[in-house]
Amino acid sequence: MSILVYIEHAEGAIKKTSLEAVSFAHALSQQTGGGDVVAVGLGTIAEDQLAKAGEAGASKVLYVKDSKLDAGVIQAHADAVAQIYEKVGAKTLVLATSSLGSAVAARLAIRLQAGLVSNVVELPDLSSGYQVKRSIYTGKAFALTTVDTEHKILAIKKNAIDLKTDGASASVEVVSLEIDQANFATTIISTDQATGEVLLPEADIVVSGGRGLKGPENWGMIEDLAKVLGAATGCSKPVSDIGWRPHHEHVGQTGVKVAPTLYIAVGISGAIQHLAGVNSSKYIVVINKDPEAPFFKAADYGIVGDAFEVLPKLTEAIKAVI
């Protein structure tokens, strides 16, 4: 039985969350007695990038080389993946929970009559049916969910599974598909993307600032620390509401949900809505001048102190060891 994995890329580089989905599919195929793990990439992707899916656990990569698919037009991607799914004769589709991935998965759930579970955090338990653990209530709880259909779609939550890196480089086969023009009903006019930065949703380390930083002119301290760590920068909601930082940096219940190895929060009080976006982080460091700030209750390490004093010192101290 084959498993198909839909992989996303940003300007030709495969996303880490998609490689995690490949590793998940690999582990799933081992659990269910082997079978091919086929990864499918759409658009324009360098072949050596595609081959990387092999290291993450794919046995084969199908490459639909079509520049019309470079933009993430949801319906067109869904149509391409459905055609490949049928061609491969797969019974399960695995992908990353992301804005494009989830949208594609939703359309495919209807088209393939497949049961769909999102935010999956573990391999399914097959001892009693097909039971999947998924994260709900923005990380505040889990639901054990059975999938009651023959065809299954699992959308994996980021950082939920260890990335496999020791697989063999996979063979890449270019396939061409006919995609009906009707699937391009939404037209992308332009994109406006920050380049050269570490993307927040994918970042391994995040340095975030809150209202405690007093104004946008003080973000240099946050950026310096982020630079030393190779981290992405984030912020609390009021900070993006007032326009100190761009909206796509806002972390929390109503913003980006991050799941980095290390989250450093500076001058953020730790309101429950902010915590909802960071509670999947492995380690949390809090710097706040108020010892009663609620964020300390969710933190692993903390410093009670003035950010303007502590942050430059911390950046220097980290520079000295890495």
């Binding site: 929970t97 989830s102 949208a103 998965a105 939703a106 759930a109 935010n119 709900i136 209530y137």
Partner: peptide, 16 residues
Amino acid sequence: SIDFNGGMVHGMVGQL
């Protein structure tokens, strides 16, 4: 939705 966080219903309705 902020209970089940699926981000799925709009895509499903679209396909239907």
